[in-house]
Every structure is written in structure tokens, then in C-alpha cells.
């Protein structure tokens, strides 16, 4: 198995996900299998292939620097679970 339980807990913490002990074991197995499968690519000779920097073959899609109408404050806050004083309100953040 290429993925340890510690790896899973570490990544879960970065993604702010919480798992039970059993789930961590199961995920280590499942994610490990996915990684092992992807690992088969390492067996290929890529020395003559240009590195893929980006998956799209398109380049230079730009916008002109022109102002367009914005949402109103009410529209912007319409989906906010909580708002106050024209702002989105989130649980207190300690600096």
C-alpha cells in the first residue's frame, strides 16, 4: 500500500475533512490503489515527449480592460447565510 493512514489524516486536515478511524483505513486502501494505478505511467519512456504544462491547447485568451456593470450590494448578498452592514458575515476569525 503506497498511502499511510498518516498521509490520509494529513490531507484530510488540509481539506478540513473529518473521518472516523475505519474511514481512514478504508481511504488509505482506496486512495492508495488509485495512486498505484497512476504509478503505472512511470513505467513509460517519456524522455522524448515534451512536458505537459497545461491540458488545453488554446493560449492567450484575454479580455479588454473595460468596466461592465456589477451586482448591487443586495444582489451580492442575496445568497449569504448571514450578512451585516452590507457585508458577508462569517464566524469570527482570529488574526
Amino acid at each position: 500500500m503506497s498511502l499511510t493512514r498518516e498521509d490520509v489524516t494529513y490531507v484530510a486536515n488540509l481539506a478540513r475533512l473529518e473521518f472516523s478511524e475505519d474511514e481512514v483505513t478504508a481511504l488509505a486502501d482506496q486512495l492508495g490503489a488509485v495512486l498505484d494505478y497512476a504509478e503505472t505511467l512511470s513505467g513509460l519512456d517519456t524522455s522524448k515527449i515534451k512536458a505537459t504544462e497545461h491540458v488545453l491547447a488554446v493560449q492567450n485568451v484575454f479580455r479588454e480592460d473595460e468596466i461592465k456593470p456589477c451586482l448591487t450590494n443586495e444582489e451580492a448578498l442575496a445568497n449569504a447565510p448571514e450578512s451585516e452592514a452590507g457585508c458577508f458575515k462569517v464566524p469570527r476569525v482570529m488574526e
Binding site: A76, A85, C87, K89, V90, R92, E95
Partner: peptide
């Protein structure tokens, strides 16, 4: 920008 002005939360200006 986060504004720490609310009594029970943090306010966000986008």
C-alpha cells in the same frame, strides 16, 4: 478585506 467590527462574527468586503 475582513472587517473585525461585528460583535459576534467577522465581516467580509469582496
Amino acid at each position: 478585506k475582513l472587517l473585525h467590527e461585528s460583535a459576534d462574527g467577522t465581516l467580509l468586503d469582496v
